[in-house]
Amino acid sequence: MIVPIDLLLLFFLLIVGIAALWVKDLLAAIVLTGAYSFVMANVWLQLGATDVAFTEAAVGAGASTALMMACLSRVPRWEK
């Protein structure tokens, strides 16, 4: 583990997480959730958890984002 990279990734995690909850456009929020999952996969590589990292990249950033997109095609796009 390299400390500056770890701190930078955790800072990105915080920023992307807040941004995903802050935007009013739900499509942008879902894409930001996928970005959050990718940053989290990198954090897990830093922690030495390689298996969790590629499960997160496949399930969290891939399948979960696709399911949310499929749900968004049936509900309104903008949050009030």
């Binding site: 995903a20 879902i30 968004l72 009030k80």
Partner: peptide, 19 residues
């Protein structure tokens, strides 16, 4: 208020707990 936003918050909560 929005249910999809609630679900995004829930998934962020779960991932942070895993961390």
């Amino acid at each position: 208020e929005n249910f999809l936003k609630k679900l995004i918050g829930l998934s962020i909560f779960q991932t942070a707990f895993f961390l």
